[in-house]
Amino acid sequence: MADLKSQFNSFHDTIKLKEETEVLSSKRDIIINRIKDKLPENTDYSFEIFNQGSYAMHTGIKPLDSDYDIDVGLYFDMSKEDVKPVESKNWIYNALKDHTLDVKIKKACVTVTYAAGYHVDVTVYSANNNDGKVYLAKGKPTSNTADKYWDESNPKDLIKEIRDRYSDKEDRKQFRRIVRFLKRWKDNTFSSVNGKPTGISLTSCAYHWLSIQKETDLFSGVTTYKDLDALICVVSIMISNFREELVLIDEEYTWVSRLKVELPVEPKPDLFEKMTSKQMETFKSKLETFLEALEEAKAATDPTDAAELLEKQFGSDFPIPSKSSTGKKAMAAAVIPSSESAFELL
């Protein structure tokens, strides 16, 4: 019954996005200074800058393609009635456009791409509304009118909700480790962006469905966290939460198995809503393969076998221990005796 505690710990150390690197924070500072400098030329609304994204939630992992994602949120002191969403994104675009070659207005943000494997996503919010809510500017200049809108969003509440999940400090750490493991599994298992679940959707699955797995030794009082069990727990709940739905495909009603998960804050949208039926099917079968590997790894006696099974799911950052590193050291080499055996019919 392998639990691979030390392999999971070192895997976590490898994939965890630690203290922001100097490069990352200096890139962020450059963008922020540029915005502070140039934005007043484009608008009179005052704004507040905050860090968002998985780093702020303490669930960030290193990207596989070393394309680091820096998320900057701007809370504008304006109501959604006063400014059109794409107009506000144009302010940012204009402030940044001469900064690097590559500035693009995307659906949910303005993205600045550096050649060296970093990109900064700047997100615009309207934060002074009569209903007390915060709205995210959606749409590109070229989008249809229906796709240009203010979308209710609570990034600060979301960060707080995820960051402060579980009041016990060690429980919280297991939650964050599980989120990171699920995200790396996703990056390793889905080759194309199409149909790949988002980081926040998997984070939300762990938020809702993880139950902390730990064991306390009755004699020593020492608590051990069982990450392999925790993964088995959350992945099996994900699989069992798929529901059959009748969907119209090519003018025919077909039963399709779909998973829904709510964002933990208002307006609590279903984060898997955009997946097509086909993508859902792939997602489910990948989850099933994942669960099978997790369970087989747990059942394996030899930690090397167990780690090999998990390396297929998590990728090469998951360490495979050498046999000699898993075994106790003998005091001395055995002196081999002679031996005799026979077969007798009694």
């Binding site: 019954m1 392998a2 639990d3 691979l4 505690k5 030390s6 006696t301 030899d302 930690p303 046999k323 898993t326 075994g327 106790k328 081999i336 031996s339 055996s341 026979a342 077969f343």
Partner: peptide
């Protein structure tokens, strides 16, 4: 008849035995 010796590990993780 054939035979030989068994050689293996005692795991650090849980003290289980493996004949390698």
């Amino acid at each position: 008849e054939a035979g030989g010796i068994l050689i293996g590990r005692i795991l650090i993780e849980d003290g289980n035995y493996i004949i390698d």
